[in-house]
């Protein structure tokens, strides 16, 4: 190469430093100072920032709403993982294994909600759940189950489960495509061999497909868990705002309320630290349990 060392480092600096400075200012610095703020009692103005040590963390442990927000988050994680994985696996197998002419149509349609705005999804589903005009209650009336009709999002017991369906609805397509990618890489000869051995389609799924696409299944589950823990509060905020009576608050929406509605920024940061720790722990634990040796036949 003709260029000198000095030129090389100048070019490297040109490529890396401006980007890293922006990243440091707008991503790294806020994360670390979030940790720092969690030790302060702070209502936003600079005069009223007072170091309180672990007081926010003690408050966190004593706060009766916190355990509920954690339970709500993990309820959404569990139901979304089950709902999305069961349906996405089923659709992925159906669209790859069985020769269906119109498969591309389903692929395109099922994926679309993945790129819709959470606001649009949330508002659309709020209307679907609308007690008087909504599709759900009208549908129940239509099939003669009026007694089941209820103000879904206004009911303390039903509001949180009602949020699962929109999340599953919006999420399936991506994971279906991920799994389809895995399935199409499985060599046809395995299925031919399994068929010769007299394995039913059901057995083929459990004994051939699932073990061979385990990496994709694992990635999908981890991805659902991470995105739910880090982002479930957005649909909560749009659809219920945490209500009725805190029955749908998740950690993130509670953080928003504490920090940006009630101006307890220090305490909000403490909730943020909890979200960070819980989501990292969950991912580590999951990765440990889903470790499985790569299957090769």
């Amino acid at each position: 190469m003709v260029q000198s060392k000095k030129q090389k480092y100048l070019f490297l600096a040109f490529c890396l430093i401006p980007t890293f400075i922006m990243f440091a200012i707008f991503t790294l610095y806020p994360l670390f100072s979030g940790l720092y703020y969690s030790f302060f009692d702070w209502s936003g103005s600079s005069q009223n920032k007072e170091f309180v040590g672990l007081a926010n963390y003690i408050k966190l442990v004593k706060d009766a709403i916190i355990p509920n927000t954690i339970i709500h988050d993990y309820f959404l994680v569990a139901t979304k993982v089950i709902g999305i994985m069961v349906l996405a696996l089923f659709f992925a197998v159906a669209l790859t294994q069985l020769k269906i002419k119109e498969a591309p149509f389903y692929r395109i349609v099922f994926f679309f909600p993945n790129i819709m705005s959470v606001v649009v999804i949330g508002i659309l589903w709020t209307f679907i759940y609308n007690p008087n005009l909504g599709l759900v209650n009208s549908g129940l009336e239509f099939i003669g189950l009026e007694s089941w009709a209820k103000p879904w999002l206004g009911d303390e017991d039903w509001a949180l489960p009602s949020l699962v369906l929109p999340s599953v609805w919006a999420g399936i397509g991506l994971f279906m495509l991920l799994l389809m990618g895995g399935i199409s890489n499985v060599s046809k000869s395995y299925y031919e061999a399994a068929e010769l051995d007299g394995a039913s389609e059901w057995q083929q799924f459990w004994k051939v497909t699932l073990p061979l696409i385990w990496p994709q299944v694992k990635i999908s589950i981890l991805y659902i868990v991470i995105t739910t823990l880090n982002g479930s509060f957005i649909i909560v905020q749009v659809m219920t705002g945490g209500g009725p009576n805190n029955s749908t608050h998740v950690m993130g929406s509670y953080l928003y309320q504490q920090a940006f509605v009630q101006y307890n920024f220090g305490y909000g940061a403490t909730i943020g630290v909890m979200i960070l720790i819980l989501s990292l722990l969950t991912v580590l634990i999951l990765q440990f349990f889903m470790r499985r040796d790569k299957v090769e036949y």
Partner: peptide, 24 residues
């Protein structure tokens, strides 16, 4: 290392950073 730093930021919940970002 630099690549890992960038990529692992995809997995970090950014809510925590939004409070300081607001004041920044």
């Amino acid at each position: 290392i630099l690549f890992t730093v960038y990529v692992s930021a995809m997995m970090i919940p950014m809510v925590l950073g939004w409070i300081p970002l607001f004041f920044l």
